[in-house]
Design a protein around this nucleic acid. Sequence first.
DNA 1: CTCCCAGTCTGAAACGTTACAGGTAGGCTA
DNA 2: TAGCCTACCTGTAACGTTTCAGACTGGGAG
Lengths: 355, 355
Amino acid sequence: MALIGQQNMSTKDLKRVSGSEAVELPEGERPTLKTIAFMAGLGVTTVSRALKDAPEIGRATKNRVQLIAKQIGYRPNRAGVRLRTGKTNVISLVLNAQSEIMGLTSNMVYGISEILSQTPYHLTVTPYSVENDPMQPIRYIVETGSADGIIMSRTEPDDARVRYLTEHGIPFATHGRTEMGIEHPFHDFDNEAFAYKSTKSLLIKGHKKIAMVAGPTSAVTYHRHLDRGFSRAIEEGGAQAILVPDIDVDTSLECIRDRMEEIMSGRNRPDGIVCCSGSAAIALVAGIEAAGLKIGRDVDLVSKQSTDILKWFRPEIIVFNEDIRHAGRELARAVLRRIEGVDARELQSLSYPEE
Amino acid sequence: MALIGQQNMSTKDLKRVSGSEAVELPEGERPTLKTIAFMAGLGVTTVSRALKDAPEIGRATKNRVQLIAKQIGYRPNRAGVRLRTGKTNVISLVLNAQSEIMGLTSNMVYGISEILSQTPYHLTVTPYSVENDPMQPIRYIVETGSADGIIMSRTEPDDARVRYLTEHGIPFATHGRTEMGIEHPFHDFDNEAFAYKSTKSLLIKGHKKIAMVAGPTSAVTYHRHLDRGFSRAIEEGGAQAILVPDIDVDTSLECIRDRMEEIMSGRNRPDGIVCCSGSAAIALVAGIEAAGLKIGRDVDLVSKQSTDILKWFRPEIIVFNEDIRHAGRELARAVLRRIEGVDARELQSLSYPEE
DNA sequence: CTCCCAGTCTGAAACGTTACAGGTAGGCTA
DNA sequence: TAGCCTACCTGTAACGTTTCAGACTGGGAG
C-alpha cells in the first residue's frame, strides 16, 4: 500500500509563484487559477469570480480572464472545488448487479451519460450484489458524501432508500414510483397502461382466458401497476384471468419456462398471455413450445421489451417498447434539476407504451 | 462515540487540548483526522501516519488511533487526498455508446465493480458516441487527471489510445490486444482458438464449405485473430472458405440478415458457419431461415456468445461462451496492479473458449 | 474641502490530507 | 559528563478553490 502513490509521475519540483514573480509559464503542468492570475496580472480571487461572471468584476476584466482561460484550456480542479465547497460534481447510478440478458443497464448508463456529457458531472456506477442490503451503497454515498445526486432503480412501494435520502436531503431520482406519500423525482414507464392496452389487444382478438407474467408477487412497485391495468382490462372484457403464481422479476428463465410448460399443459390453459419483459418472454415461449403449442396459433403472446430482440426471436409476439435510454435521460435531467433546487413534483415523468 | 471519555493518563496531553483550538466534539459532522487527533490527544500528522502503519509511530499509538478511527467510522476525505496527492482513486471505463442487444456493457461493469468494491476505488463510466473521436474521452481523462487508471475496449491493432496513454505514463488495461510493439496490460478472449476449434468442429461433422461472420473487415484486432484461427483450420481440413464480405462489428442486424439470406440462396452456399457474436448469430439465423433452410439440418452454425441466450433462440446452435464479467474482473485487477507499478507483461491474460 | 459611495479588485483563511523538517526524551557510548 | 542515537511525535506548508473582510480608486454630494 505504500507503493500505491508511486505511479504518480514525480518531478513535482516546479518553481512556485510565491509572493514575488518566479516566472512560471504554462509548462507541462495543468493551468490553475494562479496561472491565469499571473498571466492576467490579477489576483486569484478576481480570476475565480471573473470566471463565474460575478457582478463585482468589470466587464472588460471578465472578458480578458475568460479569454485567457479558454486559450490555455483551463479546467477547474475537481478536488479543489470539492474540498472547498463539498460539491462533488458526481452522479451515482446505484443498481443491483443481477445478471441480465438484455442491455438494460447499458442503455440506462448511456442515456444518463448523454445528459451528463454536457455538464461538469461525472457518472459513477455502484452495483450491489443481490444478496446484499440495497441500503448499503446508499448509506455509503451519503456518509462519505461521494455524490451530489443518486439515480436508482427497482423502486418499491415503500422504499427504505427513498425515505433515507429524503430525510438526509440528498437529491435523487428513481426509476419507478413509490407509494409512500413522499414527493420525489422519478421516471416511470406506464406499466398500467401497458398491461391494460396489451390485455385489451388480446381481448379484441377474442381471447377469453388471459394470463400475466410476472405477477404481483414482487416487492417492486411496477408489478402493482401491471396488475391494476391487467385487472381493469380483464374486468371490462369479462374475461378470465389465469394466475401464474410465484414468478417475479428475479425468477430464473429456466424456472419460468418450466412453470409455463406446466400451465400450458394443464386443462385450463390461457389463450392469451401478457408478459412484462423481453427475457421472460423468451422463456415463456420455450415453455409454451415445450407444451407442444405454437405462438400466434394456439396462444397469443404480447410482451414489453426494452431492446428490439423479440422480433428476431418469434415475430408472432406482439411487442410494446420501453425505451430505457430515454428513461436514463429523463432521470439524469431530473436529478440535475433537483440538485438545482427545483421542486420534486415538477420532476416526475411517465412514458407510455409504444407499439 | 463510546470512547469520548477516554483521555488516558498523561498530563502533558492536556496542553494540546487547551492550548490552541476551540474544543470541537464529534457533532453531526463527518470525522476527520483532526477529530481523531483531538480524541487521541495527538497531532494530525501522527494520526495520518498511524492510520497507514508508518514505522515511525509506536505500536501502542497505532493501535489506539486505529481503534478510535474504526469506532467513529472515519473515512478519509477523497477530495483532501486527491488534492494533496493527485491520487483520484478512480478507475474510468471508457466505452462506445453503441446500442447493444446483449448485456455486454453491464457485465463488464459488474465484473470491474466486483474487484473495485474491495478497494477504495470508484468506477466512472465515460461513453463516447459512435460518431465521436475515440481519443476524446481519453484525452479528457488525462488532461484533467480525472482517473488513476483506464479500462477500454474495441482495441485496434494500431491503437492511438494505447500509444497516447503509454506516452503519458497513464496506467490502463485494454479488452483485446494490440499489435504495435508496446507491452501493456490486457485481457483478451482467445478468438483464434475459438475460431479454430469451432471451425474444426464443423469439419468433423463433415462440412466442406465454411463461412465465418464477421470477417476481418473491421479495425478491431480480434477479427484478425478470428481470421487466423479460421484459416488455419480450413487449411488443415482442406475445406473451402466462403467469404462473407462487408460485415464487421458495427454492421446492423438487419444488414447481416439480408446479406446472409442472399448468400444462403446462392448456389455456392456454405454448409457450416462460424459466428463470433450472439447478436450476429440471431440475425444470421433469420437470414438462413429466410432462405428456406434449417439450422442443424441444412447448415450447422457455431457461435460465440457472451450471454446465455442462444440456447433459447435455436438450441441447435453450437455455442462457445465468452465470460465478460470475468474479463471485467481481470481488467480491473490488471489496471490496479499496473497502478501499483507491476510490470505490464505480468498483467496480460487470455481466456479460452468453453463449450 | 471633506466625506461617502459604488465599482473593482485584493490577501488571508479554510476545506482535509500528506511531506518535510524538525523536536524531545531517554538511553547508550566514549 | 558530554555527545549521540533511536524512537516517537509535532507544526508548518502546500495542493486549488471559494468566501470573507477589507482596500483602493474616482467621482458625486454636502
